[in-house]
Design a protein around this nucleic acid. Sequence first.
RNA 1: GCUCCCAUCGUCUAGAGGCCUAGGACACUUCCCUUUCACGGAGGCGACGGCGAUUCGAAUUCGCCUGGGAGUACCA
Length: 488
Amino acid sequence: MSEEVRVRIAPSPSGNLHVGTARTALFNYLYAKKVGGKFVLRIEDTDAERTSQAYIDNIFDSLKALGLNWDEGPDVGGPYGPYTQSERFDIYPKYVQELLDKGFAYECFCTPEELEAEKEEATKNKQAYVYSKKCENLTEEEKEKLRAEGRKPAIRFSIDKARKAFHDSPVIHFDDLVKGDLHQDTSLIGDFVIMKSNGSPTYNFAVVIDDMLMKISHIIRGEDHISNTFKQILIYEALGAKVPRFGHLGMILAPDRSKLSKRHGATAVSEFVEKGYLTDALVNFVALLGWAPSDGVEIKTVDEIAQDFRIGEVSSSNSVFEYDKLNWMNGQYIKKLSTEDLKERLKPFLSQYDLSELTDEQYTRMVEVTREPLTILSDITDAVPYFFGKDVVVDDEVQTTVLDTETSQDVLKAFVEQAKEWEWTEENLHEKMEVFRGEFKEKGIKPKVTMWAIRGAVTGRTRGADMTAVLAILGKDRVLERAKKAIK
RNA sequence: GCUCCCAUCGUCUAGAGGCCUAGGACACUUCCCUUUCACGGAGGCGACGGCGAUUCGAAUUCGCCUGGGAGUACCA
């Protein structure tokens, strides 16, 4: 039973779910799925200042949208709850006391000013700063005196004592799931605070307690946590707990190789969704940042990826988040959507238009003929203005380079003349237009030039959806009116 | 500053001593298809950061250098 694989994602709700966190969540999820383990969600809302319910909801929604469903979490519960850190506050003191009793922790009465001075001194001497440990061997009398001054102690973890109890060398190692053997000289790690003077646990302590109590067996996270790992291993050992396996993923960088931030565009999963990215495409893309399919087929569902996933094969280097491939991939996913599904998904991006102008059939056809070039859903906004309203806005350039030409004028005159007699069904229009192009071709005018004239008059543009379909959707009256209007 | 991690095309990556004149995907580009844009199809451009060492043989092993990233809090 203790062999059960349990992984977790423990986001801090100080912002919307970041793509980096999403990728970490994904890799944990993939690992759990692959080996039949449990995926746990824990909310680390210790920092009340930056936490908000909106962010918590955003994290839930984003994870769900990505298909990363958790087996245990704040909402669904589980055997090792609560899964919200702020509700776990009363369980930490017990373990602090245990460490105190075992001699692996001690009270520290240093003030922020004193600590600051130590640090300055260290930087001045170009030394790496490590806490002086001056409070480690305080006598009871000294402690009483400090307490009488009104000082409230923080609790520090004694790196050296813990290390000596379990390791021969000050250099400790662990076998990382993705990076292999990792080591660190613990004499370079200062005795860090595990419980603040206000009684709340620090991150490095709380995670260990939470992960230990939640029986997390494998901790897969960003490599920015490597240095924390050594501290955490020592705490696990000091508590007599089983040390979990760790796996550290490379970071996701922006194209300029700096940390991905708002400056580079969207960073939260929800922002990508708002921009018109499909969550299926987003997870797929993010999975490819560090992982490669064994069969070379890159477009895959999360379940398919899970089948093929091996944590040891994940790349240990950082990767750059480039939009090019994401865009391509999103386009591929849009192509796979049924028209009915796409019609619904497109609606939020068509809010500036009055969809009631169109019958369902017209809307369906419009989507069918405009969906091809979409890479993100919001592209639809720019692709359809001419389907709405009576008139059309003609680009200046289209006016001068297309409509104003003598050829175009001839084409439009002939078009109006002939089209008013046509039966206005798409099928019939298709035939008629073919004949129409043929007539002009005989006069030496290329089919595309003929079409440009009509397209320019009817849509105001030189590019767009299939012309015949556009004519059919717009209806005879509007088409003829717009065509006439373009004739001088 | 100190410590740690990383290093194959512009980007994501395959590659675990000879199968590599380094493969794929995206991007870029040429051509084809075509009522435009796009999609699709067929090509092209394009990389083992540098220097040593080990070896008959290194992208693959080792060392140094360089470059990039991260951590150095009573933040998480």
